[in-house]
Simulated assay, not measured.
Amino acid sequence: MDGFQAYGAGKTGGAFDPLTFIRQPQTVVRILCWLFSIVVLGCVANEGYLNRPDEVEEFCIFNRNQNACSYAVAMGTLCFLCSTGFLALDIYFPQISGVKDRKKAVMADIAVSAFWSLLWFVGFCFLANQWQVSKEEDNPLQEGVTAARAAIVFSFFSVFTWALQCLLAIHRFKLGADSVTFNQDYIDPTQQEAPQEALPTEEWMDGA
């Protein structure tokens, strides 16, 4: 069963090849999701909060809405951790021997990717709306403007990267459904032994 494949990976026991792993489409997209989450998190956490001389507390650059900044920071942090976890799972995936366990991992990838794509869409709409209605007098020096716009842009990009990751996971799921079988070259040993076992009977009948 040298051609055995289950959900996009071969039999367990093979050596890990970093170059092959990096070149996989799902790995490339996963790394992009990871990087985009870092950009959004870094932009909002570092430059998303402003303060004025006449105010004690800092306020969010997105229309003074603390929920907008909190949402972006939470999204960036959780998405970073989630992407890291699934990257580790992708590395370990070929070592999963159970077909059912592989199926569960791919189904989890589909569900999580679709969920994150939806959350990033909501986040993009939320940040873009709050940025549009922000008042110029709240930020006369235009501090953090570039970072705020970058957070919005990469939130938009994250919608498509996670959606693409979901489609790749669906493709792996369809491959798994078709490939968890014996290949055409495989011959059942019992079928090879059956004619040999019948030979003594035929010789006995000829002798009779």
Rank of each mutant, 00 (worst) to 15 (best):
Q95F: 07
S97K: 05
L87V: 08
S70E: 13
A88G: 09
V73S: 08
A68G: 03
F80S: 06
E55T: 13
R52I: 10
F62W: 01
T77Q: 09
E58D: 13
Y71R: 08
I96L: 07
Q66G: 12
Q66K: 15
A88V: 15
I61L: 08
R64F: 08
I61P: 01
L81K: 02
T77N: 07
N65W: 08
L78F: 11
A72Q: 02
L87S: 02
S83F: 05
G85P: 06
V56F: 15
N63M: 03
D90F: 14
P53E: 09
N67S: 14
N63I: 05
A74F: 13
N51W: 14
P94D: 02
I91E: 03
L78P: 01
G76W: 02
L81F: 11
P53G: 07
A72W: 03
R64H: 08
Y71L: 11
E57P: 10
L87P: 01
G85N: 04
V73F: 11
E57F: 15
C60L: 08
L87N: 05
S83I: 07
V56M: 14
M75L: 13
N63S: 09
A68L: 06
E55H: 12
T77S: 11
A68F: 08
T84E: 06
A68E: 01
F86H: 04
C69G: 11
Q66T: 13
T77G: 10
L87R: 01
A68K: 02
S70V: 12
V56Y: 15
D90P: 04
Y71A: 07
N63F: 06
L89G: 04
F93L: 01
A74H: 08
V56P: 10
N65H: 10
G76A: 02
F62I: 01
C79N: 11
Q95P: 06
F93G: 00
C82M: 14
C79H: 12
G85F: 09
C79S: 13
N67T: 15
D54E: 13
G85Y: 06
C60V: 07
G76D: 00
A74M: 13
L87F: 10
Q66Y: 14
N63E: 04
V56C: 12
L50H: 07
E57K: 15
L89P: 01
T77A: 10
L89D: 02
Y92M: 11
N67V: 15
D54H: 12
A88F: 13
G85M: 09
C60K: 04
R52H: 11
G85K: 05
C82Q: 12
L81C: 09
N65T: 11
L81A: 09
L87Y: 03
A68Y: 03
E55Y: 14
S83Y: 07
V73W: 06
C82A: 13
F80C: 05
C69D: 03
L89N: 05
A72L: 03
A74Y: 11
L50C: 04
P94R: 03
S70T: 11
M75T: 04
G98C: 10
F62N: 00
I91T: 09
F80H: 06
F86N: 03
Y71K: 05
C79K: 03
C60A: 08
F62Q: 00
P53A: 10
I61Y: 03
Y71T: 06
L87T: 05
L78R: 06
Q66C: 12
L89Q: 10
T77E: 04
D54P: 10
N63A: 09
N51K: 15
I91D: 01
S97V: 00
E55L: 15
F93Y: 03
